[in-house]
Amino acid sequence: MIQTLDAIYEQGVFRPLTKPEIPDGESVKLIIETSSKLNPEEMLKLAAQVYEGLSEEEINEIEQIAGDRSNFFTGHTP
């Protein structure tokens, strides 16, 4: 059986906005398709989660690597 349901993803759990027509405990396969574009506030919130759980040193190392464009065009000749 295939059903299309709208859901919210919160704290690691998908919460359907309408009750699915399946019994409790039924195994399902989810195919995720995000709907609307994020507003700037939501985008900043998601971006901030990238560094959750990392130390200041780890964050600085990631930022340094991300900012280094010296090998960006390696293998390409102008």
Rank of each mutant, 00 (worst) to 15 (best):
E57W: 12
N60A: 15
G75I: 05
S35D: 11
Q64T: 15
E52Y: 02
S35W: 01
P16E: 02
L17H: 02
G75D: 01
D24W: 09
Y51M: 10
L44C: 09
T34P: 01
K19R: 15
I31H: 03
I32F: 10
L44K: 10
L38T: 05
T74F: 04
L38E: 08
G12Q: 03
M1A: 14
T18S: 15
P20N: 07
V50M: 03
S35I: 13
Y51V: 13
S70D: 10
G25C: 08
S55G: 11
E58Y: 05
Q3Y: 09
S35A: 12
F73G: 03
G67I: 00
L38M: 14
G75S: 02
G75N: 04
S36M: 02
G53W: 01
F14I: 11
E42F: 01
E56M: 06
L5V: 15
G67F: 01
F73V: 06
D68S: 04
E61V: 07
I2T: 14
R15W: 10
S35E: 12
G67S: 13
R15V: 10
S70Y: 01
A47D: 15
M1R: 09
L30K: 04
F14N: 03
H76V: 12
K19D: 14
P20M: 09
S35F: 03
L44W: 01
G53L: 03
P23H: 12
E57D: 14
R69D: 10
N39Y: 04
M43G: 14
G67W: 00
T34W: 04
S36Y: 02
T74I: 07
R15P: 00
E33V: 03
E61L: 11
F14P: 01
I31L: 06
S70E: 07
I59H: 07
S55N: 11
N39G: 08
E63Y: 01
E21M: 12
K29C: 03
I65V: 15
P23Y: 05
Q49Y: 02
G25T: 14
L38C: 02
I8G: 00
A7E: 00
E57N: 10
E21V: 14
P20E: 11
T74D: 10
S55F: 04
G53T: 00
K45T: 14
S27E: 14
S36P: 00
E57Y: 06
K45S: 11
E58C: 12
L44M: 13
H76F: 08
V50T: 08
A47R: 09
L17R: 14
L30M: 11
H76G: 00
L5P: 02
P20V: 03
S55H: 08
S70H: 05
E57M: 09
I31E: 06
E26T: 15
T34S: 06
Y51T: 15
T77Y: 12
P78I: 06
E63P: 00
H76M: 09
T74K: 13
L44T: 05
A66C: 10
S27T: 14
L44E: 11
L46I: 03
G75T: 02
K45A: 14
F72H: 04
E42D: 12
E10Y: 02
L17F: 04
F72P: 00
N39Q: 08
K29M: 06
V28C: 12
K37W: 00
E41C: 01
S36G: 10
E56I: 08
F73K: 05
L5M: 09
P40N: 05
E57F: 12
Y9H: 07
E52M: 07
E42N: 04
